[in-house]
Design a protein around this nucleic acid. Structure first.
Length: 575
RNA sequence: GCGCUCGUAGCUCAGUGGAUAGAGUGUCUCACUCCGAAUGAGAAGGCCGCGAGUUCGAUCCUCGCCGGGCGCACCA
């Protein structure tokens, strides 16, 4: 498709300006106000070199470039050269491009098949899957889809938190107060009960903590009794997690969690020793990072058992050797910024240059409102909102709305899931991932305005218009060429521009590890479509006008469906 | 105390080294004999936390302060 910035840069370029083609291209901007054109070139930067007022330069350039078929008008306003695209030409380009590419519109091959690992979700086994876990899960899934869309070969890893002292605690608690029947009935909630009780009682009796650590040492040493219990907890948990993953439509290529690396650690502990990085301190073994302004990275505890960093080092090297990744993306909470900094530094000190290809993608905290108080969710305290409850409630509310509206021709059961769960996912992907937020039922159950259901509704509405068109019309708009001057109105044109930008927005979202960039753009498209829909009648009598407009509706529908797909959200035809 | 991070409309949040800082929500209006009103239009609402600096130009970059969040060795 045409690249207007390239065209403009080529038109403007002149040796006398003292800027390279690339520099000129980068200066081109999209004006905030549409009245100022579709693209603008500010001339301030040229003033010094040319020793001329920027306004004069702009006037010169505007006079020099003109006559390209892509532009309806080129003019200067003060220090800016403003370019107005030829609307009909542009609409034709975009609409036919979308029609040609269909589901592939927005995708590209920038990645050239290189391998990217995305590690995400990674819940702790034996703990509930709560609303806080949605972030890594949903952001990670969107990043997987985005990287896949821009041409990378993506491996999805669920790095389960299935190891560590917490399992010592769990085993101790189960042995003291557990019952098999209770566990079978509702595994996670029961395990959570034991875990909560453990922490309550450990406050009174600190020896429980020691007992838990010893138990973990035995687990890591492969003692059959401990291993068997651990396996049981792991299996029960996975069954429950998979139920949530199914609802969200998420799958993984690997569930190699922390335990997977337990037998791979000794090699690295030895390597750290050999490289003179490991020092003894208070009975533990650490890598001193003081000169880098960080607290030490603890590699083994005084009882000899491993820690988080130890396992992450093993995991990183394993992945490099096993997958030979181009990039390894860790979608993990910002609370662990320090951990990742330490871990990267240790890898660097070990001489693994590829650590620079390991990228921590952090996200903010989800907290709960408790009256006037805002507090962190705590598994230990038992103050959590279960993700499954949130999803189910959203689905129920959707079904209720659909019954009220008496939506025809759909299976409420199926569509309410697509819309309800889509609403929760969309909400999660709406804001910058780094922002903290307070969970709110009102917010997650609001389906008006900039929400998932709004975008899905727009898709359903476009689908409905196309259903109302005749078979002959639909056949005609598949790749047809029409009188695009019917798409020169402000609202049609605004929509065309947004559709045009989708491929670059997808790339940017992947580049910045920020799905919300796409979510926001999708909202803009939906708003723009709805405005177009209100401003203009689509199924008009004039055949040429109708076909041009239908082609735009069809393109919009395709793009909305594609973008929703990249976010991991369904696009129902009716709702 | 140190490090990281956030601070933009009543609330939730976009935004960019450039032209008059934008949405949604809430409040008040208006629009369904018309392709889906989970919609659209309008009104109202802003020392872009504060103070310096860099720049032709700063809400954006730098430094300092203030306020919130997170983290800082035997948890993950």
């Amino acid at each position: 498709m045409v690249d207007f910035k390239d065209i403009i840069a080529n038109e403007i370029y002149d040796e006398a300006l003292g800027l390279t083609l690339e520099e000129i291209r980068n200066l081109i901007e999209i004006p905030a106000d549409e009245k100022m054109g579709d693209y603008a070139f500010p001339c301030f930067r040229l003033a010094k070199a040319l020793r001329k007022a920027p306004q004069m330069i702009a006037a010169d350039i505007a006079a020099r470039v003109s006559g390209n078929e892509a532009f309806a008008k080129v003019e200067n306003v003060n220090a800016y050269v403003n370019f107005f695209i030829d609307r009909a030409f542009f609409a034709g380009q975009v609409v036919t491009e979308v029609a040609d590419k269909g589901a592939a519109y927005g995708r590209s091959d920038e990645g050239k098949g290189r391998k990217v690992i995305v590690e995400y979700s990674s819940p702790n086994i034996a703990k509930p899957f709560h609303i806080g876990h949605i972030r890594s899960t949903v952001i990670g899934n969107a990043l997987y889809k985005l990287y896949d869309a821009v041409g990378f070969d993506v491996v999805r890893i669920n790095h389960l938190g299935d190891y560590g002292t917490q399992f010592g605690k769990m085993i101790v608690a189960y042995r003291k107060w557990g019952s098999e029947e209770e566990l079978a009935k509702d595994p996670i909630k029961t395990l959570l009960k034991y875990y909560t009780r453990f922490h309550k009682e450990a406050k009174e009796d600190p020896s429980l903590e020691d007992e838990a650590r010893e138990t973990f040492v035995r687990l890591e040493a492969g003692e059959p009794e401990e291993v068997e219990l651990w396996k049981k907890f792991r299996e029960l948990s996975l069954t429950e997690f998979n139920r949530v993953y199914d609802m969200l439509g998420i799958t993984f290529d690997s569930y190699a969690g922390e335990s997977f690396y337990s037998d791979k650690m000794p090699r690295f502990i030895q390597e750290l020793k050999d490289k003179g990085l490991l020092i003894q301190s208070q009975g533990a073994q650490i890598v001193d990072l003081e000169e880098y302004g960080m607290s030490p990275a603890m590699i083994t505890k005084s009882d000899g058992s491993s820690l988080y960093v130890t396992r992450d080092i093993a995991a990183a090297v394993y992945r490099k050797e096993h997958y030979d990744f181009y990039k390894c993306i860790y979608v993990v909470a910002s609370q662990q910024n320090l951990h990742f900094k330490q871990w990267k530094k240790v890898l660097e000190l070990m001489g693994y240059e590829w650590q620079k290809d390991c990228i921590h993608v952090p996200f903010g905290l989800v907290s709960l409102s408790d009256g006037d108080d805002i507090k962190m969710m705590s598994t230990r305290e038992g103050t959590v909102v279960f993700l499954e409850d949130v999803l189910n409630t959203a689905v129920e509310k959707t079904a209720e709305i659909m019954r009220e509206k008496q939506t025809q021709g759909v299976d409420i059961d199926t569509v309410s899931k697509e819309v309800g769960i889509g609403a929760v996912i969309f909400q999660e992907l709406s804001n910058n991932r780094i922002k903290d937020y307070v969970f709110s039922w009102d917010k997650v159950l609001n389906f008006d305005g900039e929400t998932g259901p709004y975008v899905q509704y727009t898709h359903a509405r476009a689908s409905s218009v196309l259903r109302n068109a005749s078979e002959a019309d639909l056949a005609a708009i598949r790749g047809g060429n029409f009188d695009w001057s019917y798409l020169e109105s402000d609202s049609a044109y605004a929509l065309v521009k947004l559709l045009y930008r989708v491929p670059e927005v997808v790339l940017e979202a992947a580049d910045k590890y920020e799905p919300s960039i796409l979510t926001r753009h999708l909202v803009d498209i939906a708003q723009s479509f709805n405005k177009f829909y209100h401003d203009e009648h689509i199924l008009v009598d004039d055949e040429n006008e109708k076909l041009a407009k239908l082609a735009l509706v069809s393109a919009s529908r395709t793009v909305i469906a594609n973008c929703l797909g990249l976010l991991g959200i369904k696009a129902p035809e009716r709702m």
